[in-house]
Design a protein around this nucleic acid. Structure first.
Length: 288
DNA sequence: TATATCTCCTGCGGGC
DNA sequence: TGCCCGCAGGAGATAT
């Protein structure tokens, strides 16, 4: 499941393999993969042709290719299962190939997505808070790996919210790049239960939590991201290894590496949360 | 306005 | 063997 580290691995791959290349042609094989491009697949394909990829950028889980000469951006979201693959055209189509772009290098840039939660869309570039980014990404907060990430500002936002801390961590307008896996890992490191109300957590505690969020992402990035199955791969089709280092996520009934208590799994926001019952006690009063 | 819940989607595994 | 159901979860839409 691609979260920030996985998306950054993909961005680096694109930076190395497709920046500087020109798009010769585009074939959209599944309309849902371009549903965020409101003018449709024909428009997307036509506007991508003869555009040169000038840069590969990222904020949170969104990545985009800056296009010249149109000065627009091809925004890519991997969703749950999206892959950006640089392939030899002779390689048979993947089962879930959704979009194919033929580059002037003679290679394919393929978007493969089993669950079709991801997709491509074109967007205009705007400047927000001194950073140029696609207008469709303008509402996304800076992520912990952004050099201009401001933990104090995020702590202030968190303390002003009336919600639970895990819910807030997953809110991409507060802090971006965090998904279910790294939220659970950071909360485990900070010894905080995800149902704790944000406004009841002290500023130092929130600062430590944000530090753990950044740490866990950097460590995952060093190891090429997290992968539980074949759904996440980098542009060369290789998986990450960070899943071997997870302390909470997916560790149900395994002993906590800190205290030995069996890790519990709970339903939260229609998905699963993993935590240590001893290190991360539930709050006495849970909203709702 | 802020927060919570629903929905989209596909493949896999478990139960019957 | 085959069918049904639950699960995985990011983010926009919708409800409260």
């Amino acid at each position: 499941m691609p979260e920030l580290p996985e998306v950054e691995v993909v961005r680096r791959g694109l930076d190395a393999h497709v920046v500087g290349r020109t798009i010769d042609s585009v074939e959209v094989l599944h309309p849902r993969a371009v549903r965020r491009h409101l003018l449709g697949s024909v428009d997307l394909a036509q506007r991508l042709e003869r555009q040169t990829i000038a840069a590969a950028e990222r904020r949170g889980k969104y990545l985009w290719l800056v296009l010249e000469p149109s000065a627009t951006a091809l925004v890519v979201h991997l969703g749950m299962s999206g892959q950006m693959l640089v392939q030899d055209p002779a390689v048979p189509d993947e089962k879930h190939l959704r979009i194919r772009a033929r580059l002037d290098s003679g290679t394919d840039l393929r978007f493969v997505d089993q669950r079709t939660f991801g997709g491509w869309a074109l967007a205009d570039l705007v400047t927000v808070d001194g950073t140029e980014l696609p207008d469709s990404v303008a509402h996304i907060a800076r992520d912990p790996l952004d050099p201009r990430f401001d933990p104090a500002a995020v702590v202030k936002v968190l303390r002003g919210k009336q919600t639970e801390i895990k819910r807030a961590l997953l809110d991409q307008t507060v802090v971006s790049g965090v998904g279910n896996i790294y939220a659970d890992e950071a909360l485990w490191r900070a010894e905080i239960h995800g149902n704790r109300p944000t406004d009841k957590l002290s500023a130092p505690k929130l600062h430590r939590l944000l530090g753990h969020v950044g740490d866990v992402m950097r460590e995952a990035l060093d190891q090429g991201g997290t992968s539980f199955d074949a759904l996440y791969v980098n542009v060369n089709g290789q998986s990450g290894y960070f899943d071997r280092s997870l302390n909470a996520y997916g560790q149900e009934n395994l002993p906590c590496r800190r205290c030995g208590a069996p890790i519990r799994r709970e339903k939260f926001m229609n998905r699963s949360s993993y935590s240590c019952p001893r290190c991360q006690p539930r709050p006495r009063l849970v909203r709702g």
